[in-house]
Design a binder for these strands. Structure first.
Lengths: 199, 199, 199, 199
DNA sequence: GCCTAATCGAGACGGTACGTCGTGTCTTCTG
DNA sequence: CAGAAGACACGACGTACCGTCTCGATTAGGC
């Protein structure tokens, strides 16, 4: 498992120092050059302690990552579906293009392909909730008649998130806000929605 | 550089053995567990020879990859823009979901984040041409009035490829043909195109 | 110090469990593979407790060792110097060739070279008393005229004990009783003693 | 095995640097504190190289040791048995009491108890030849009538070497030359030899 | 027969070293 | 003379113990 086994005796000091060191090193050298050895040295923590609470470098960074983004992207419902989607996608763009989280996330995505537990954790803790939140917001819009009743919501979410990931994994520059607005408009139009609020 | 230095004396036998061994190992163990050491041993080739012709494991696999897909996805123009886009995207889906190329490509995408030369090579040899081909085909459709004159073509291409990458990097199941067809329809509709040929 | 600090609250149960576990492990794996960690686990005792009462693994085994041999080799004076020396040396041979004490003693001798406190303790508790006992018995024999007045007693004791240690540290098979008898005779003759009782 | 597998490609430079570093560290810190890690660092050699050619720290030091003493103690036959034995035993005393070889040898003796291959190597390369040489010299003396025909030669050799080991392993001060001379005289007398040349 | 402090088990902690593996370079021998 | 074989210095891996350090939970004496 990725989430640590329960223990009452765990040192919060070591935990924080480890996560902070991992993020720092990710910024300085890039995920691929970060080693457990270096994290331990930077954090003033023993390697044993790291291996006691995490299964891999990826698990450490995932925790650092989720820690930082807990509650960071709540999905507020302003009533304006286009606005809310823009807000949501913009936060994702920022997430993946801000140091040190962007490089860290790219690394986590890499590691997912060889580490099943990590893949599962990413799905459950990061991707799943955001995907669901976007789908829920679209569903509400559909119920309110802002988008047609037969709209394919999962497809819409993929069309929204897809380009963000596309740019991130191919190291292309992240979308600016205007591009995101245009993307949201296109997706809504593709569903058959009436042109809504101005981007 | 990724593309090998020219040489008149290069052994084609060693080249093929190396690429084949790399793909085999990728299938068996996954990209992350493939090592130059193991490729050399499997191929019956010395490490020195590998390092002479490639800069990294990623470069070997990229060559194995492009080798296999040279001319594999020509962009035929049938006159039906929706059909041609479906064909194109389906080939990309197949590319990323077929053993051993799917796992290999995931690995290459990982390595791109730490290997600038590899990133450049991927862009030039794989991503760029395909992106351009899709854009060109859309441009022709625009010229023929099948899609509006003000359509944002790069955005459209990103909306088409984005979901493919999204699923690939997040280890979600690849799209089936119906889903791809629906995606293409949605993208065309988002551009303001008239509903076209039935999927 | 090697001998434990005095305490009224010390748990005899823990003490015995520790010593027994240490001897068991010494038999099973050999001194070099015995660790404080393993002793604690086997004894159902915490490492802290071991470190509270002993300074090192060597100290634990020395105590286990001396515990077992307290009063085990009294030097009885039968009036027959050769017989008494044979008895004495035979007990030393048995000491060093009996499981688990032989391997434990070999380990203690090893550790002595890096642990001054242990070296001192071995000298004071084991080697010194036995050497003195042998020398005393020889002195009495000298006083009774059984050996010449100018006999070099310390040299004699070294000649008696030397071969026992020689075989022990070089992992040669221990002397049998006939060999010990012959050794004692040779040593006595070397001092210029009249040939004594038959072996 | 202790003696390295044959190879034509072995780097003599690395070999010497390793042996020298091992001896230096043995002098500085004592055998027990010497680590393969430290030997490698000091020698500017990789740990892998050490593990390639030796099985353990003990094997390294044994080779350093035997290297230094190859041909160092030839058994010259002057015709005077007492003189020759004194020479021989004195060389053993010096061997075990000279930095860095004394501490190194103590460590090797320790390790022998847990490392069967090392034990065998010590017997074959160091102890066996010296024991045989001493026994041979005594045999010649016996043939020449300098000692009785029924003399127990192995026992004599043990009586000669025993005290040397006794002092070495118990960390007592080494014999001086007068003590060695007296020891040799006693042993010869114990065999029934006529008092020989003056010490 | 309580009360309270030392002692106990358990085990997390910062470390050091282990022995192994992979990297990328370099050398030697062979076809 | 390119290529296989593989030794080399380096550095990270993940593990084992070290000796120190909290933690509650007994568990004795002194009251």
């Amino acid at each position: 498992m990725i989430t640590p086994q329960s223990s009452l005796r765990r040192s919060e000091r070591s935990r924080r120092a480890t996560l902070d060191a991992a993020l720092e090193l990710c910024t300085e050298k890039g995920y691929g050059r970060v080693t457990v050895e270096a994290i331990a040295a930077r954090a003033g923590v023993s390697k044993k302690t790291i291996y006691r609470w995490w299964t891999s470098k990826g698990a450490v960074l995932l925790e650092a990552f989720t820690d930082a983004f807990v509650g960071a992207t709540p999905f507020v419902d302003t009533g304006d579906i286009a606005l809310d989607l823009r807000t949501h996608i913009n936060s994702a763009v920022r997430l993946t293009s801000t140091t040190p989280y962007g490089p860290a996330y790219a690394g986590i995505l890499s590691e997912m392909h060889y580490d099943d537990a990590l893949a599962e954790a990413v799905q459950e803790q990061l991707v799943g909730p955001r995907f669901a939140a976007a789908e829920d917001r679209l569903r509400k819009a559909r119920e309110q008649g802002q988008i047609p009743a037969d709209a394919d919501l999962p497809l819409a979410v993929e069309m929204l998130y897809g380009p963000v990931y596309y740019r991130h994994v191919l190291r292309k520059p992240p979308q600016d806000e205007a591009t995101v607005a245009s993307l949201v408009d296109h997706v809504l139009r593709s569903l058959g929605a009436e042109p809504g609020s101005p981007g």
